[in-house]
């Protein structure tokens, strides 16, 4: 089994990073994870965001969190992106692949992927 000693090694490696991380993130990615979201496929969407944000090295800036039902169950999986000083962006009917695109274009590139947003997507 993957040993707890390995976990200890992770802790030692991460010690310095954690201090840096606190309080610096100003972008929040919030994935709807109520019954409606989960049934529509939110679990792989969430995990895709977590993975992509880390792979793109955006962890200092971006936090990925979960929330309950937003009230738009028919548009799930739903992802909201909050950024200090900007209007909230709501992406609907998300997939793991779309999550990857949002991380690259929106979170990294700064351009909203309008075709996935609640206003544009059909």
């Amino acid at each position: 089994m993957k040993s707890l000693a390995e976990l200890k090694a992770i802790k030692d490696r991460m010690k310095d990073k954690v201090v840096l991380r606190e309080g610096t993130g100003n972008v929040r990615v919030v994935v709807g994870m109520a019954t409606c979201g989960i049934a529509a496929g939110a679990r792989p969407v969430l995990n895709a965001f977590v993975e992509a944000v880390n792979k793109e090295g955006l962890t200092d800036k971006v936090t990925v969190t979960q929330t309950g039902c937003v009230g738009l169950c028919q548009l799930e999986p739903l992802v909201e992106i909050y950024e200090a000083g900007k209007e909230k962006v709501t992406y609907i009917k998300m997939t793991a692949e779309k999550a990857q695109t949002v991380v690259e274009k929106h979170l990294k590139g700064g351009n909203i992927v309008t075709e996935f947003t609640v206003a544009e997507a059909k």
């Binding site: 089994m1 993957k2 707890l4 976990l7 992770i10 802790k11 954690v18």
Partner: peptide
Amino acid sequence: EMREVLGDLPLNSYEVILWVREALLEQ
């Protein structure tokens, strides 16, 4: 058990989440 080892390092740190995945898949 993980918390005992990790101390104040959050359990949702990416490296820790990957460890969870690997640990379960390996078992």
